[in-house]
C-alpha cells in the first residue's frame, strides 16, 4: 500500500509562545519547531503498516516556508521513504494549502492520504477535509487504526466511550487522532540517512495554485491572562467555620458554586 502523509511544521509544544509586535501573529525568533503532534501520529500509523509489510511506501509532504524542511527530515529519520517540500509563505490560507496538496497527491497517486486531524498551532482542522473535497475522495476523521481489507481499508475511529469501524474504498483521506504506539524515536542510522536524502522542492505556481486573498483574517491575538495567586485559608481549629468560609468564597468570589 502507498501512503502519503501531509504534515505541518508548528512551534513545538514546549515553546512558550509570545504575541508578536503586530498583535496578530506570534513572535517566531528563537522558536523550536517540530512536526504537529497529530501529524506525528499519522506518520507512526503509516510506518506501523510498513513494519508489517515492507512493500509499503510512506511519503511525506508539507506546504510551508523553507524551515519546514527540518520537519520533513525528521519524518524521513523516523523511516518515511521520500519527502516533498512545497514552499509557501506562512500566510497562505488553508484552502490554498489544500489545493497545493491535491496537486501533489494527484501526481503521487497514493492509496491512502493521512493528515493529522488538526494542526496544533491554529487548531483549525481545515486542510484535511478541504483536501478530500479538492480530490473528490472520501474522508474519515478521528482515526486510531487502519487495516487493509479487500477493495479498501478498514478504519477505526475513536468516539465517546469506544470506537467505530468503518470501511472505505481507496483512495481515501484519513484524519488521524492518535496511533496505538507513541511516535517512534528515530534511530541514528535513520537520522544520518535522512540527512543525506534529497528533498525535492516545488512552489505553488508549479502546482498551478495562485494564492488568493485570505478568506479569513486573524484580527488580534492575546496571551491568556496571568493566573492570580491562590488564596490559602488558615485552619485555626474551627473546621465548620472554615468550610462555611470556603463555600462563601467559592460562591461569591470564584462563582463556581
Amino acid at each position: 500500500m502507498k501512503f502519503l502523509v501531509c504534515l505541518k511544521q508548528v512551534p513545538d509544544s514546549t515553546v512558550r509562545v509570545k504575541v508578536a509586535a503586530d498583535g496578530k501573529s506570534i513572535a517566531t525568533d528563537g522558536i523550536t519547531w517540530s512536526i504537529s503532534p497529530y501529524d506525528e501520529y499519522a506518520i507512526e500509523l503509516a510506518l506501523e503498516h510498513k513494519d508489517g509489510d515492507p512493500s509499503t511506501t510512506v511519503s511525506v509532504v508539507t506546504v510551508g516556508p523553507a524551515r519546514s524542511r527540518d520537519a520533513l527530515r525528521q519524518a524521513l529519520a523516523m523511516g518515511c521513504d521520500d519527502a516533498t517540500l512545497v514552499t509557501a509563505a506562512d500566510t497562505v490560507g488553508g484552502l490554498d494549502v489544500a489545493k497545493a496538496l491535491a496537486a501533489v497527491v494527484k501526481e503521487a497517486k497514493p492509496d491512502v492520504v493521512l493528515c493529522g486531524k488538526q494542526a496544533s498551532d491554529d487548531d483549525q482542522g481545515l486542510v484535511g477535509p478541504a483536501l478530500a473535497e479538492a480530490l473528490g475522495w472520501p474522508h474519515v476523521g478521528m482515526l486510531t487504526k487502519i487495516a487493509a481489507v479487500a477493495d479498501g481499508v478498514e478504519l477505526w475511529r475513536e468516539i465517546e466511550g469506544g470506537h467505530e469501524v468503518w470501511t472505505a474504498p481507496t483512495p481515501v483521506v484519513g484524519l488521524v487522532h492518535k496511533s496505538a504506539k507513541e511516535p517512534r524515536y528515530p534511530s541514528l542510522p535513520g537520522i544520518m540517512k535522512a540527512k543525506k536524502k534529497e528533498i525535492p522542492e516545488k512552489d505553488l505556481a508549479a502546482l498551478g495554485v495562485t494564492p488568493g486573498a485570505p478568506r479569513a483574517e486573524v484580527v488580534a491575538m492575546e496571551p491568556p491572562p496571568q493566573r492570580g495567586g491562590g488564596k490559602i485559608l488558615k485552619a485555626d481549629g474551627d473546621v465548620k467555620a472554615l468550610a462555611a468560609e470556603l463555600a462563601r468564597l467559592l460562591h461569591e468570589e470564584a462563582k463556581v458554586l
Binding site: D12, T14, V15, R16, E182, Y185
Partner: peptide, 19 residues
C-alpha cells in the same frame, strides 16, 4: 523517548519551556 525528545526540543528532560 519522551525525555529524549524533550531534551532535543526544549533542552530539558521534563519538556519545560526553554525560555
Amino acid at each position: 523517548q519522551r525525555a529524549m525528545t524533550n531534551i532535543e526540543r526544549a533542552g530539558n528532560p521534563w519538556g519545560e519551556a526553554r525560555a
